[in-house]
C-alpha cells in the first residue's frame, strides 16, 4: 500500500470513530427529558431583558474594572520585582506567591466578610465592591508575572541603546521597554482577560444586591426561582458572546502589531 493511501485510510478511520462517538453521546442522551429543563424557550424568554441590561452589563463592567486595576497593580508589582531594591523584590515576590497560591473564591470571601469586621471598614460599592477589590488583587498577581516575563523578553540591546543616548532608566522603561513588552505579552494578557471574565462569576460568594448581580449570580437566582436550568444555558451562551469577539479582536491587533517588529 502506498504511504499516502495508508495515511488517508488512517485519517478516514479516525474521522469515523470520532463521528460514531459523537453520535452515540447525542443519541444516548434523553433529549425529551432534558429539553424542558435546560432548553425551555418560555423560561429563556423570561430572563430577558434583565440578563442583558443588568447581568451581562455588570459582567462586562466588573471585568473591565478588575482588568484595568489588575494591570496597574500588576505593573507596579512587576517593576518592584525587577527593582534593584531588595525589600521591594521581597514584597513583590511574597505578594505574588501568596495570591497565586490562594483560591480566588476564598480571597473574595475574605474581602467581603472578614475585612469589614477586622478593620471596621466597608469597601466602596458594598459587597460587589469588596469582591472586585479582591479580584483586582488576585489578577494583579498573575498579570505581574506576565508583565515581568514581557519586560525580560525585550532584548538587552534596547535598554543599552536608550541609555547610551542619555535617557534615564525611567524614560527608557516607559518609552522603549514597556511598549515592546506589552506587544510580546498580548497573547498571555488576552488569556488573563478571558479568565477574568469567567472569574467574575466567583463574585456570587460576596453576596450581591439585586442590581449588582453579574451573569452567573443572576442565572443561579433564576435557576432557584424557576426550578429550571435554562437560565444557566442562556448565561453560558452570553459568556461566549462576550469572549469570542474579544479573542478575535486581539488576534487582529496582534497581526497589526507584527508590522512594527
Amino acid at each position: 500500500m502506498k504511504r499516502s493511501t495508508r495515511r488517508r485510510l488512517i485519517q478516514g478511520v479516525l474521522y469515523a470513530v470520532f463521528a460514531a462517538v459523537v453520535l452515540f453521546v447525542i443519541l444516548s442522551a434523553d433529549w425529551g427529558t432534558i429539553q424542558p429543563y435546560f432548553f425551555n424557550p418560555d423560561i429563556a424568554a423570561a430572563v430577558f431583558p434583565e440578563i442583558l441590561t443588568i447581568a451581562a452589563r455588570n459582567t462586562v463592567i466588573y471585568t473591565a474594572i478588575a482588568f484595568v486595576g489588575g494591570l496597574l497593580l500588576g505593573l507596579l508589582l512587576a517593576l518592584m520585582k525587577l527593582s534593584p531594591v531588595l525589600p521591594y523584590r521581597w514584597l513583590a515576590t511574597g505578594y505574588i506567591e501568596l495570591f497565586r497560591g490562594l483560591p480566588a473564591l476564598l480571597v473574595i470571601f475574605g474581602f467581603a466578610y472578614a475585612i469589614p469586621i477586622a478593620f471596621q471598614w466597608r469597601p466602596p460599592g458594598g459587597n460587589a465592591g469588596a469582591g472586585l477589590i479582591a479580584l483586582i488583587i488576585v489578577s494583579a498577581a498573575y498579570i505581574a508575572e506576565t508583565i515581568r516575563a514581557g519586560i525580560e523578553a525585550v532584548p538587552k540591546g534596547q535598554v543599552e541603546a536608550a541609555r547610551s543616548l542619555g535617557m534615564n532608566s525611567a524614560w527608557t522603561m516607559v518609552t522603549v521597554v514597556l511598549p515592546q513588552a506589552f506587544r510580546i505579552i498580548t497573547p498571555p494578557l488576552t488569556n488573563e482577560l478571558v479568565i477574568l471574565i469567567k472569574d467574575t462569576s466567583l463574585l456570587f460568594i460576596a453576596g450581591m444586591a439585586i442590581g449588582d448581580r453579574e451573569l452567573t449570580t443572576f442565572a443561579r437566582d433564576a435557576l432557584t426561582n424557576q426550578a429550571n436550568a435554562t437560565p444557566l444555558v442562556v448565561a453560558a451562551l452570553l459568556y461566549l458572546v462576550i469572549t469570542l469577539p474579544l479573542t478575535q479582536l486581539v488576534a487582529k491587533l496582534e497581526r497589526h502589531n507584527k508590522r512594527g517588529r
Binding site: P155, G157, Q158, E160, A161, A162, S164, L165, V176, P179, Q180, R183, G260, R261
Partner: peptide, 14 residues
C-alpha cells in the same frame, strides 16, 4: 557620546 552597536538596536516599535 554617540554609540553605534553591531546589532543596530533601533527601537522596532517606533
Amino acid at each position: 557620546i554617540g554609540m553605534v552597536f553591531q546589532q543596530f538596536n533601533l527601537f522596532p516599535h517606533l
